[in-house]
Computed example of a mutant assay.
Amino acid sequence: MADALPDLTAFDAVLFDLDGVLTPTAEVHMHAWQVMFEKLFAAWDITPAYTERDYFEHLDGKKRYDGVASLLWSRDVEVPWGEPTDAPELDTVCGIGNRKNAVFESVLRSEGIAPYPGSLALLDVLRDAGTRIAVVSSSKNAREVLTAAGIIDRFEVIMDGVIAERDGLASKPAPDVFVEAAAMLGVEPASSAAVEDALSGVRSAAAGGFALVVGVDRGVGAEVLRDAGAHVVVADLDEFLAGDGAGIRTAAPAPEKEESA
């Protein structure tokens, strides 16, 4: 039975993850991580081999360096943390993370990126309804991706890895980045919705007390997203668009909007 979908325009705000929700950059990230870690594991004779499941369990949705540390720890490998300015050739957590980012940036520059059509259509509906929207991404490349996709001007607030690092906010699955983004918008999580495709992101929004947590299943699995805390799961955000361009209301409607203080 399909999830009954609420009207997203009835919430005070909708906060979107970026990679895998608004743009298919998750695929570029997945490829960049795979290329980098397969070379690293081969050079260091690390077993078991890197798999796609490693991406979903240790990397997806997390800040870059936290993801590197998490995956290495899963193989009982520990290296110095280093500094964000470390060269990609250095065998530190930061150096390894920067190594992956070099691959990602090369692909983004050469191939560009476009938003998912269903996501863009939903952004249009929310804009026309006056619903406030924000991006909540762990990536330090968020602004570059949004610019390349031509949608950076759509969002009042862009909470990204740069701000999270500057302000000492914990990485997803901690609720910090979602809760802080809501505060930057001047809304309460309890009257807002969050949209995520990553397990860590779903757990982050659920822990932040958001009224609705939407899971977008781009491959991790619908049941896994529900188990992580998603209230509803869709394969694409165009499922929220009814024939008249409005969200679909359910028997349990979203909370009424209130004016922000």
Rank of each mutant, 00 (worst) to 15 (best):
T131E: 04
D244P: 04
P175W: 12
L120N: 08
A211Q: 07
E57M: 13
Q34F: 01
P88I: 00
D128M: 14
V145K: 09
A102R: 14
W33N: 13
E196Y: 11
A242Q: 04
M159L: 01
V234A: 05
P117S: 04
A149E: 03
G247K: 01
D66P: 02
L5S: 02
G247P: 02
P173F: 00
D227Q: 15
P175E: 14
D160M: 14
A134C: 09
D176N: 10
V103Q: 08
I96T: 12
C94W: 07
L59V: 06
P6N: 08
T25P: 04
E256H: 11
E144V: 15
I96C: 06
S74K: 01
G221V: 07
V177E: 07
L185T: 03
N98Y: 08
L199K: 05
R75T: 13
F56R: 01
A174Y: 13
I96S: 03
S70W: 01
R75D: 12
P255R: 02
L185F: 02
A149N: 03
I113Y: 02
A129E: 14
N98V: 04
A182R: 02
N101T: 08
M159I: 00
E156Q: 14
K63A: 14
K100N: 01
R143T: 12
D160N: 15
A183G: 14
A129H: 12
R154K: 04
A164C: 15
L22S: 06
D17C: 12
A181Y: 12
D227C: 09
Q34V: 01
A164Y: 04
E239D: 10
V135D: 07
F178M: 10
A102P: 00
W81S: 01
G61A: 11
D60E: 15
A181H: 12
L169W: 15
E105P: 01
L90Y: 04
R132D: 06
T9N: 00
C94D: 06
D17K: 10
V77I: 14
L40N: 04
V68S: 06
E52H: 10
P173L: 00
A205F: 05
D91M: 14
E180R: 14
R203G: 09
V233A: 05
I133Y: 01
P253H: 11
E89C: 06
L146A: 11
A261V: 12
L212Q: 12
G112V: 03
A246Y: 04
V93L: 13
A252G: 05
A102K: 11
R64Y: 10
V21H: 02
D160F: 12
H58S: 07
V213L: 07
I46A: 06
